[in-house]
Design a protein around this nucleic acid. Structure first.
Lengths: 248, 248
DNA sequence: CCAAAAGTGTTAGACCTACACCCATGA
DNA sequence: TCATGGGTGTAGGTCTAACACTTTTGG
């Protein structure tokens, strides 16, 4: 049974081409109806789809999200949403906050619990699920018009990511398994929206002991090949628990 | 109209006698029923009250909380809950997270959006509302048995407060308007669960420029009277926005 | 051999830690 | 005059910010 007054939305962040991107989608009505209410169509479910511009317009995009089901744990359902709408699995996912103004969705009283996910697009090929009419990465600096209060949800998630990245080692989830220090620096520069000094950045990162030299290098680049690093999962877990100071 | 699957719970923190306390209550059934469903009693509302041990037991305590109403904004309703259950008004209140495991309340599918409030008990006389059978401060170190997952909600809120206090100047809301540096230090020691060095603490605090010397002193204390400070609201707002580093 | 990005060290100032004694007050 | 908590300074170590040149690679 679908809970008509609670939905779960995921802000999926990806880092690519030195840009921070968000994944947006347009849902496909018929399969969604079946997913959410296999037996019968009641008035409220009809309402969800008929009022909701996300399901009518080809022009508007929205966050990946669905109404919560009665028999699903909240955190588990956020994971499941990622899975069934994009094929993405096994990623860093964390609750942002719950949005619950009465007028956030016109004509329908529905709260949404927002999550953000951090993924590395190189490692997660999106498969277009039957639920999705369309799915697309948008640069965070250049978002299209979105439905409801999704703009606000994205801004809040970005703000939270910015906070998080300063005190916990989460940014790494946006990078490929092996990465260069320059990639890492760009990532921080973009999330924090601030130029960083390369020498100081490197010293700071190396002092954390979090990075492991893979003894590999870039290949086929038209300049000196950079060393590739990965991160140490034990030290990652320790830093995640203790916190770290990355106020730069 | 009450939303049967969403409630809002408030973890009210207060600082008193060098202890961090939480306010717990036991609700009074009849007035609650009327508040939540003035017209008619439907099955689901009955269920809320009959299954909920908070409303049956004199032994169990719970967080101050109510089911959300359809015509109330989420944030506004959290404020209102504080108001109508305890008479407390105009306090620092912030969303913690939403708890939504399917089995968190036996026999009823209900999510709860948790908030925490920071108050200074000296400035907020609790009035026992008709909704409350009983209401009581408990030391965070010595909580009674509580209903549902309220223990987990309290632990999560405390964890969030601990985080928050290290990077934002929120702790001050737990103190009276004028306070001594020793009070402030005790507060940090208790929240962070760590002894702090007095000289270093004072240097650190004074460097922030946040405190204003009121030119007043304690009176009637059997030792050297301490200076009283208040905090500068402009610098408070600035630090709240920018963040501060209080990892000590 | 050129263009492009990788990689590296030093210095001055700020901040952090550890530590012990005298001061003011009321009883 | 005593018990109680208030209030203060310094030195050594660590972290931060500012800054420019050499190295490696492929084209």
């Amino acid at each position: 049974m679908v809970l008509k007054d609670i939905s779960v939305d995921c802000v999926i962040f990806g880092f690519n081409n030195d840009k921070l991107n968000v994944l947006l989608w347009q849902g496909e009505i018929e399969p969604l109806k079946q997913l959410l209410n296999p037996e019968k169509e009641n008035e409220q479910i009809k309402e969800i789809f008929e009022i909701n511009p996300a399901h009518k317009s080809d022009r508007l995009w929205g966050l990946v999200g669905l109404h919560l089901q009665a028999d699903e744990d909240l955190d588990g359902y956020a994971k499941k949403i990622l899975q069934i709408t994009t094929g993405i699995d096994n990623v860093y996912l964390t609750q942002v906050k719950t949005f619950g103004d009465t007028n956030r969705v016109p004509g329908l009283r529905v709260l949404t619990v927002a999550y953000y996910a951090l993924i590395n697009p190189d490692y997660h090929d999106l498969k277009l699920s039957p639920l999705a009419k369309a799915i697309k990465w948008y640069d965070i600096e250049d978002l299209p018009d979105v439905i409801f209060d999704h703009k606000e949800i994205i801004q809040n998630s970005l703000k939270k990511l910015r906070q998080e990245v300063q005190y916990h080692p989460v940014g790494f989830h946006l990078l490929p398994e092996k990465f260069t220090l320059t990639q890492l620096q760009r990532l921080y520069e973009i999330i924090l929206d601030k130029k960083l000094d390369t020498r100081n950045f490197r010293k700071k990162i190396q002092n954390m002991k979090l990075l492991v030299d893979t003894n590999e290098k870039q290949t086929n680049v038209a300049h000196r090949a950079a060393k590739l690093y990965s991160f140490d999962i034990d030290i990652y877990n320790q830093l995640k628990e203790e916190g770290l100071n990355f106020r730069i």
